[in-house]
């Protein structure tokens, strides 16, 4: 039964204690981010006269250089970072899966063209490509999402192409060719469902990388533009040595959040990989 396979995956996933803890952490963070407008005590962009104040009763995570409430800003920043990561992952996965399917199934010249484009994009220094693209198209939320989406797809394309190549040789695909079934049926109903597992695992790592890239770009001033808060541009304020040494509340929470988000996403991805591996027992 479909149910029993699904239950087996859940069961195996729950064996990874770290991954389960990470999953709970992610769920809580996501809920906080989604509920930001309700939870946050202040408007994240509201300026007050208490500049760079350490945590107090009024602002329990302190205020930034122009007097905005750090807690409210962090809530909204996680919102933006998760959104950028998710949107970039969805875009790159869709592009990668589509191109990988086409290249793997049809082969020949189409395969060669697609895979050489993939190799070309992969051979560029990644962060440089993103920086150049950001400076050409200009910084901004949607530009960042699109740029990250368009540079992250080669990995997914390769992954899908590889599994399509091996699935194409299986007897059940050949059986469907012999049965005269059309290509669209074989591609979408027979091959695609069997590639979902690895793609899902790969997508989690793209998700983590996208969050990191957004943070890096915003830190460099090429990403999400102020006053919109993102984890990266909150860190941007920590460029000076006095802030780094004397005002840790301005940068430590954002930095720790990035680390925790990326680490827990990766843990979940790892556990997912083990859980959906059909050769694994119990």
């Amino acid at each position: 039964m479909k149910n029993s396979t699904f239950r087996m995956v859940i069961k195996r996933f729950y064996k990874h204690k770290l991954a389960v803890a990470s999953l709970y952490f992610l769920v809580i963070i996501t809920l906080l981010a989604l509920l930001a407008p309700i939870i946050s005590p202040y408007d994240p962009n509201q300026v007050s006269t208490s500049f760079s104040k350490p945590p107090s009763l009024k602002h329990f995570m302190g205020t930034d250089q122009i007097g905005r409430d750090m807690f409210s800003r962090l809530l909204y920043a996680v919102r933006i970072s998760l959104f950028v990561g998710l949107a970039a992952t969805v875009i790159s996965t869709i592009i990668g899966v589509t191109l990988g399917l086409i290249a793997g199934y049809f082969g020949g010249v189409i395969d060669i063209i697609i895979m050489r484009i993939t190799d070309t994009i992969m051979s560029f220094p990644y962060i440089l490509l993103v920086l150049v693209a950001a400076s050409i198209f200009g910084p901004g939320l949607w530009n960042i999402i699109l740029i990250l989406g368009f540079v992250d797809w080669p990995g997914a394309a390769r992954l899908v192409r590889g599994s399509v190549l091996s699935l194409r040789e299986t007897n059940f695909v050949k059986g469907n060719v012999v049965a005269g079934m059309p290509n669209r049926y074989i591609l979408f109903s027979e091959i695609l469902p069997n590639t979902i597992g690895p793609v899902l695992v790969y997508a989690t790592s793209v998700f983590a990388i996208s969050i990191l890239d957004e943070a890096a770009l915003s830190f460099l001033g090429m990403g999400v533009q102020p006053p919109t808060a993102s984890l990266g541009n909150i860190l941007n304020g920590a460029e000076s040595i006095t802030i780094l040494t004397d005002k840790p509340w301005l940068w430590v929470p954002a930095g720790v959040l990035i680390v925790l988000l990326v680490v827990s996403i990766n843990f979940v991805g790892d556990a997912l990989r083990d859980a959906i591996d059909p050769s694994a027992k119990e």
Binding site: T170, N171, F172, K174, G175, V178, A179, P193, N194
Partner: peptide, 12 residues
């Protein structure tokens, strides 16, 4: 039509 040797891989 065809009946394959490896019945495991001949069914999705």
């Amino acid at each position: 039509q065809m009946v394959f040797q490896d019945s495991t891989s001949s069914l999705n």
